[in-house]
């Protein structure tokens, strides 16, 4: 098999991104990362302000929304 040439020209040098280059994993990571980052920041705000989880909740929802937005911008057509 090494004797064969690798399948060149399949994507071309400046062709489009190869199909399925871990896009699924990236999407899941963005969702979870969004929730964790802004949920975490919200939790810290809660901690210092003295509220009992309002900001963590808002942060988590906001984070999920931002995660979806990031997926659309980065991975969408």
């Amino acid at each position: 098999m090494t004797g064969q040439e690798p399948p060149l020209g399949k994507h071309g040098d400046n062709g489009p991104t190869p199909p399925d280059s871990g896009a699924g994993m990236t999407a899941v990571t963005y969702l979870i990362a969004g929730m964790l980052v802004w949920g975490g920041i919200g939790w810290l705000v809660d901690h210092y302000v003295g509220t009992k989880g309002v900001f963590a909740g808002i942060g988590a929802v906001l984070g999920i929304g931002l995660g979806v937005y990031l997926i659309v911008r980065r991975l969408g057509a």
Binding site: L8, G12, D13, S21
Partner: peptide, 14 residues
């Protein structure tokens, strides 16, 4: 050959 063609070239391109 498997790693080169099915992982390296498939994912990264030429």
């Amino acid at each position: 050959g498997f790693v080169r063609n099915n992982i390296a070239v498939d994912m990264i391109g030429p």
